[in-house]
């Protein structure tokens, strides 16, 4: 077998990798915004809960969280498919990092903007929705872009909970066909190409948002 013969299997795995990345990213995005804003809430209890969530998911390893969702949750009565468990675990993990990005971006909006909103009699919720968050968005995109690429790489861990992603496909090929060097090299290259493509995509997205600082240097 040659490199070319490996490609179909690997590319099928790559599709699963992309699917997992997109799904996890969606979960992470929602979690980031919700938790990030809750961390800035007036209510101390809500802020506390959000803080605990962030520290727990940032403070423990992603792989440990994956194993927990895959092995332990079923024992507690929560039966999820491997993909669901994996997407949830990665989404919650990256959501905790993303929530810090949201929080920092919102806090970085100049105080004058909040004061102008008060002077114009905006309610706090309206001020956040129309004035503060749109401005924070521009600052959030570059770090989110980096997190997305990290998420892509993290999906490789899903192979360890039986998900047929690119890494899983590679491992299976090696176990069946050998050619260790070629297969693992191909894996690295395919991930690299995907990461580069994702990076370009994020740069294009950043250009669309008014006020965003677009980093031209490739990662």
């Amino acid at each position: 077998m040659t490199l070319v013969d490996f490609l179909p299997t690997l590319l099928r795995g790559a599709l699963v990798t992309l699917e997992a990345t997109v799904l996890s990213a969606a979960v992470a995005l929602v979690v980031s915004v919700v938790v990030g804003l809750v961390r800035l809430s007036r209510f101390r209890v809500l802020r506390g809960v959000a803080l605990v969530y962030v520290e727990v998911f940032r403070g423990t390893s992603a792989l440990v969280q994956l194993f927990y969702f895959f092995f332990v949750l079923p024992l507690l009565g929560i039966d999820l498919s491997p993909m669901t468990a994996g997407v949830l675990a990665l989404g919650l993990n990256f959501g905790s990092y993303g929530s810090e990005v949201v929080r920092a971006a919102v806090l970085n909006v100049p105080r004058g903007q909040h004061e102008a909103a008060v002077a114009l009699n905006y309610s706090p919720a309206l001020a956040m929705r129309r004035i503060v968050f749109p401005q924070a968005l521009a600052a959030m995109l570059p770090p989110f872009g980096n997190l997305l690429i990290d998420l892509l790489k993290a999906t490789s861990l899903l192979s360890l909970i039986t998900i047929g992603d690119l890494t899983f496909a590679g491992k299976t090929l090696v176990q069946g066909q050998g050619h260790v060097t070629e297969v693992y090299s191909l894996l690295l290259v395919i991930y690299f190409v995907m990461a580069l493509a994702l990076g370009r995509l994020m740069q294009a997205a950043e250009r669309r948002v008014p006020g965003a600082v677009v980093k031209e240097a490739a990662r």
């Binding site: 790489k153 993290a154 490789s156 890494t167 491992k171 894996l187 991930y191």
Partner: peptide, 11 residues
């Protein structure tokens, strides 16, 4: 930086 640590370890 653009490739997963897991694959690098396997390699």
């Amino acid at each position: 930086r653009g490739t997963p640590l897991l694959i690098q370890l396997y390699f």
